[in-house]
Amino acid sequence: MKKNILISGGTGFVGRHLTKLLVANGFSVSILSRTKKENTETIFYYTWDVEKQTMEEEAVQKADYIIHLAGANIAGKPWTSKRKKEIVASREQAAKLLYVTLVKMNKQIEAFVTASAVGIYGAMNGRAICHEEMQPANDFLGLTCQKWEAAADTFEKVGIRTVKIRTGLVMGENDGFLKKLAPVFKFKLGAVLGSGKQYMPWIHIDDLCRIYIEAIQNPEMRGAYNAAVSDDTTNESFSRVLAKVYGYKLWLPNVPSFLIRLVLGEMSKLLLTGRRVSNAKIRTLGFEFRHTNLEATLKDCLAV
């Protein structure tokens, strides 16, 4: 029998890529979705409603592992008070529904793996290198990730091996944050944002999905792991390389920080702050990043 992986948020950017890789590695996949979709030989769809805290329990019953990716897009809408609550609740309540269903069915799984983000270290700039043992920040990004991870820790408390993947900016073909950036740079209108000194820890979608599979297959993985290339990319260096990929040098002046704040409000912190992160912890397990060169990665993702 194939091991079954239940994925929340399986129809999203990361979920779609991860599903393909899991199937290619001999797993069957169950996906939780708000709407019913047609099953295939290796992919099964189940409905759930996080707000109403209901789901098709068969999804949990057949699962050997759960990967929790579900959550409102943190950059999808302005950070109004209402939107902030939605961002946090979507992550907490989804994990709660999975946990309550597991307990109700007295179901034991082999591991619970949750998405998190390097934003747990806060909307910060500076040279400090963030590692997994650091204290989380108390700003919105930090607190959101803390609550996200705390919801996952409930699984650890009942004896389920729990892994938290703190993800950087995910780069993939025709999706992720490159989907919005690429057209601007393609038409030679790219520019550095603010000072350009803010760090941009990034990861190729393929490496990220391989980390999730490592989390399933490696019983030594437990706790938090940074998932990003440790190359100290800044917004300025990223912008210059992206322009180079499209065959030109940046010519426009930096976009002023005040203008970005004026347009995006508090959400501007996503663009104007960044942090250096260490990926040493996951590499000590023997995991090797296959995509570590920014220019080659951008060419691969943008098919240039």
Rank of each mutant, 00 (worst) to 15 (best):
R276F: 07
E92K: 11
E110M: 14
K249F: 10
L252M: 11
S195M: 07
P201C: 09
F289R: 01
L242M: 13
L302W: 00
K147W: 10
V113T: 12
M1Q: 10
Q198N: 12
N39C: 03
I260W: 00
F44W: 06
Y212T: 09
G12L: 08
E92R: 09
M105Q: 15
A59Y: 04
A150N: 13
K77E: 07
K62Y: 01
L69E: 01
H17Y: 09
I260P: 03
V14D: 01
G71T: 02
K269M: 10
G122C: 12
G223T: 11
K299C: 10
T297H: 02
M200I: 14
M171A: 09
K2D: 12
S237I: 09
I87P: 07
I216Y: 06
E295Q: 10
H68I: 03
L178D: 01
R127Q: 14
K157I: 02
G10N: 06
M221L: 15
Y246T: 02
A72D: 13
K20A: 12
I7K: 00
M267T: 06
K188W: 11
Q108T: 14
F185M: 04
V241S: 04
Y99S: 00
E173V: 03
T114C: 11
Q53D: 13
F140A: 07
R16H: 13
S81D: 12
A191F: 07
F258R: 07
V118C: 08
L298K: 01
V158W: 10
A215S: 15
L97N: 03
L69W: 01
I213S: 09
V192Q: 03
W79M: 05
F27S: 00
R261Y: 08
E41G: 12
E86F: 05
V14E: 01
M105F: 10
K62D: 11
A128R: 15
Y46T: 07
K249S: 14
G172R: 01
I205Y: 09
Q108K: 15
G265C: 09
L178K: 00
A59G: 09
K147A: 04
L285K: 15
T284I: 09
Q217A: 14
A296Y: 02
L250F: 07
V263E: 05
K299N: 12
L102Y: 08
V255G: 01
V192N: 02
Q198G: 08
F258S: 12
K82G: 12
M55E: 03
Q108L: 13
N25K: 13
A123H: 13
